[in-house]
């Protein structure tokens, strides 16, 4: 069993990316907190989970992904659609005072929220965690080709959705 120091180390190294991943998934701070806590309680209770794991980050992302999927399933019975579940809530991006950036981040958050969950997860892990498709595939338990195609589909949708704003901002720069 890992001591409290191990749990603390895990938290310090992985809590921020897990938080961002879960927030992008749930768009709800309270849900994100519950899921994050659930993951760390599980790790504390079952320390052997990490015994044979080489890529801690990928493993923890998988735990987070599964926990978020479970939550969505539970919520799915109450919410009309899973898209609505993530469409109108908290942005996963940091607040900013720059008005252009503010608009762009808001639009990007909305566009991400409109992506299907499987594309959103891959896009998040590729763009903001910098994982390779092999690492994403390992984390989400899908083949690397599937991860790559989901990324391309997701990115195409984002580009299509953000094109007018993006072009405008490019001209301004």
């Amino acid at each position: 069993m890992p001591g409290s120091l191990d749990i603390e180390r895990l938290y310090d190294e992985h809590a921020q990316p897990l938080y961002a991943f879960l927030l992008n998934f749930t768009r709800d701070e309270a849900d994100t907190r519950d899921l994050l806590q659930e993951i760390f309680i599980k790790l504390a209770r079952k320390p052997k989970l990490l015994d044979d794991i080489r890529e801690e980050r990928a493993f923890l992302i998988r735990l987070a992904h599964n926990a978020a999927i479970d939550l969505m399933r539970r919520r799915g019975t109450r919410d009309k659609t899973k898209e609505n579940f993530a469409a109108e809530k908290l942005s996963p991006f940091a607040p900013t005072n720059d008005p252009d950036e503010k608009v762009f981040r808001a639009e990007l958050a909305n566009a991400l929220g409109e992506l299907p969950e499987e594309q959103r997860s891959v896009v998040h892990l590729k763009l903001w965690e910098g994982l390779t498709f092999e690492e994403i595939a390992a984390a989400l338990d899908v083949p690397p080709n599937t991860a790559a195609s989901r990324y391309r589909y997701g990115l195409d949708k984002l580009r299509e959705r953000l094109r007018p704003l993006y072009e405008e901002m490019k001209k301004a720069e």
Binding site: Y11, Y19, L36, F93, A94, W128
Partner: peptide, 18 residues
């Protein structure tokens, strides 16, 4: 685009719970 930061107070709460 920078991602939102995890609230600092969560560390104590989550580790305490764990």
């Amino acid at each position: 685009q920078p991602l939102r930061q995890i609230p600092r107070e969560w560390r104590g709460e989550i580790l305490g719970a764990a």
